[in-house]
């Protein structure tokens, strides 16, 4: 499903190149929950952004479902992000002035799903995360856990193969965090790959496979 070969990401700093990721090799088969762990600044978010098609590697190759992502054009990357991958962020990242419904609907708008089809699908996704009744509220009227569940509904709306979650519980209390992890686990059971970035070992323990990253270098950790 996901195969990174010798992926590096570097920036030009004053004296030579600074590597955020260095020769990363990672292969993920579906469906699995995989945790990428590492301290802040270790490059884990950059890795996630590359996997999600938001960023491009400086060198190396990345195959998603057999297709070379690093060769894709901007439009094709947008299509990949919108259709086959779902993002869940630590900062939730809902658009504050849009209702829960409109936020969850957004990926379908860009994927060109006809308006007649959208309503049912949004409501089904909100039902799946238990927020059907709050469809018309704006995010500021919801609790942190509810906002993150809207974000998960949004990530699910185009039925993606992979969900990328960057510290999804980082801004939630531990009980709510556990709820969110349970939602992610159930998504995994329904056949999706979940890639989880965290620096919290307890949360990482929840994953079937763990990958450690330190100064841009990836190490596989066995359980």
């Amino acid at each position: 499903m996901i195969e990174l070969k010798d992926v590096s990401k570097a920036y030009d700093s004053g004296n030579g190149k600074t590597y955020v990721l260095k020769n990363v090799n990672l292969s993920v088969e579906t469906p699995i929950i995989i945790a990428i762990m590492g301290p802040s600044g270790s490059g884990k978010t950059t890795l996630l952004n590359i996997i999600g098609g938001l960023d491009r590697p400086t060198s190396g190759s990345y195959l998603f479902a057999g297709e070379a992502v690093e060769k894709k054009r901007e439009r094709e990357l947008a299509k990949l992000r919108g259709g086959r991958i779902g993002f869940v962020f630590q900062m939730f990242n809902l658009i504050p002035r849009l209702t829960v419904f409109r936020n969850a609907e957004l990926p379908m708008v860009y994927a060109g799903v006809p308006a007649s089809e959208r309503y049912e699908r949004v409501m089904a996704a909100l039902r799946a995360v238990g927020l059907e009744e709050k469809a018309d509220r704006t995010p500021d009227k919801l609790s942190g856990g509810e906002v993150q569940r809207v974000a998960i509904a949004r990530a699910l709306i185009n039925d993606p193969d992979v969900i990328l979650a960057d510290e999804p519980t980082g801004n939630l209390d531990s009980k709510t965090g556990k709820d969110i992890l349970n939602v992610l686990a159930s998504l995994n059971r329904s056949g999706r790959t979940i890639i989880l970035v965290t620096h919290n070992a307890q949360i990482a323990a929840f994953a079937k496979r763990q990958v450690r990253i330190f100064d841009g270098v990836v190490q596989e950790a066995s359980r």
């Binding site: 938001l54 439009r75 947008a78 990242n93 658009i95 957004l106 860009y110």
Partner: peptide, 15 residues
Amino acid sequence: REIGIRKAVGATSGN
């Protein structure tokens, strides 16, 4: 930030 979110969920630059 909104622009970033929109791009993350599939908006192209053209959108």
